[in-house]
Computed example of a mutant assay.
Amino acid sequence: MTLRVGFVTGATPDKWARAWRERRREPLALTPVTEDEQLDGVRSGELDMALVRLPVDRDALHCVRLYDELQVVVAGRDHLVAAADAEGVMLADLVDEQLVLPHVSGWTPQADQLAWPPMSAADAVETVAAGTGIVILPMSVARLHGRKDVVTRPVTDLDPTTIGLVWRIDADDERTQDFVGIVKGRGANSTRG
């Protein structure tokens, strides 16, 4: 029986998928999911597990925190952000900017914001590459949509985002526990603990 694992944009399940294939006979199917829909497949039963960006509603779900990632500001190569130190900027440095995609924290610059149409992260990076505004994204998402005409700088006073693994409490079985063991770094012969 195939283990079906969703993964949110930016998560990289490849090393865990390789370990699964080395240890188990059952196939593993990886399915990309959007952040807005990252729990839908798990809750509906279409997916057995998902790598998600926390926080999420954990009602009836197991959740294991896996790793944190920096949040970065993405701006056009000619933007003032490009002149900032590679070690990063603070939100106070961005208060006069146009934020082309709402930030998950709810933070908004003090400058009057334009009414941006809904857009994906890829569309937001394309918009800032044209020299209009900024976007703040998890580093992995910014890298995924990276271009030569944009720069990224860490936002040092934003908490990192966290990737976690979720699965339904009522669907906890040997297969899911084996995958949990893999993502937690347990060896093939180790016991759960």
Rank of each mutant, 00 (worst) to 15 (best):
A86K: 07
A111M: 07
R53L: 07
E37V: 00
Q71K: 04
L30I: 01
I182A: 03
V104D: 09
E87P: 04
W167Y: 13
I134S: 02
L30V: 01
T132I: 10
A50Y: 06
L101D: 08
L66M: 05
D149Q: 12
A84Q: 15
R58N: 01
F7Q: 06
L158Q: 11
V73R: 01
T161R: 14
P138M: 05
G185V: 04
G146Q: 13
G131Q: 05
A60Y: 09
H62Q: 15
T2H: 07
C63M: 09
A122Y: 12
N189R: 13
R147N: 02
M49K: 05
H79K: 04
Q110A: 13
D96E: 15
G76M: 02
P27Q: 14
D59F: 14
R77A: 14
Q38R: 02
S44G: 09
G164D: 07
H79V: 02
D93N: 12
T31V: 12
R175D: 09
P13N: 05
V56Q: 13
P27A: 14
V95T: 14
E87T: 14
W167D: 06
R192W: 10
V52C: 08
V150T: 01
P32K: 09
A82E: 10
Q113N: 10
R186T: 00
D173H: 15
R192L: 06
W16P: 11
G45A: 00
R23T: 14
A82N: 09
V128Q: 02
L70E: 15
I136D: 04
D36V: 00
G6A: 01
A19T: 15
A130Q: 08
A121H: 15
A122S: 08
D112H: 12
R168A: 05
I182L: 01
A11V: 03
P160Q: 04
L137P: 15
L137D: 07
Q98R: 05
D96V: 08
W167R: 02
V104G: 15
I163W: 00
M139I: 14
A121V: 08
A115H: 10
A11L: 01
V104K: 10
W116A: 04
V150W: 00
A11C: 00
A84R: 09
L61Q: 06
V128M: 00
A171R: 09
P160Y: 03
V33W: 08
D178K: 12
W107M: 04
T127E: 04
E35A: 10
A19R: 14
T176I: 09
L66H: 07
V64H: 11
T108R: 13
D170H: 15
L70S: 13
